[in-house]
């Protein structure tokens, strides 16, 4: 499944990386602790988090994640957006919480 499909199904707002929505999503990772994300997320995962700090881009980039969904309608810091553009990481916003976003992705077959 492509990021584009997820954006459409969940009604996400894309705030960075509009050009890279054809990246294939291999699975999901949810969590707000950067050390855990660094240790446990897998290449191609789409990452669901509450964090908006610029460090999330560094984690996504070094683990080659397919994209980041920021939940609860949270707006990322300017520095985060800048880094996301530099690193070409798609960043999306959902008004739902982690539980529901993960739930819906799971329902459409993301594991």
């Amino acid at each position: 499944m492509k990021i584009r499909d997820i954006v459409k199904t969940l009604g996400l707002k894309v705030i960075s990386g509009e050009k890279f929505l054809d990246i294939e999503v291999t699975g999901g990772y949810a969590g707000d602790l950067l050390s855990d994300a660094l240790a446990n997320s897998k290449k191609g995962n789409i990452w669901i988090t509450l964090q908006i700090h610029q460090n999330i881009i560094a984690v996504a980039s070094s683990k080659e994640l397919s994209g980041i969904i920021i939940v609860n309608g949270r707006k990322p810091e300017e520095e985060t957006l800048k880094k996301a553009k530099e690193e070409k990481i798609p960043v999306m916003i959902s008004n739902l919480l982690t539980y529901e976003v993960a739930g819906r992705l799971y329902e459409i077959g993301i594991r």
Binding site: D32, L33, L34, Q51, I52, H53, N55, K75, E77
Partner: peptide
């Protein structure tokens, strides 16, 4: 402001300071 924080990284890793 929501989301504004001066907390160091180690505090964030303890689940606060976001």
């Amino acid at each position: 402001r929501q989301g504004y924080s001066t907390a160091p990284d180690w505090v964030r890793e303890l689940g606060f300071g976001a």
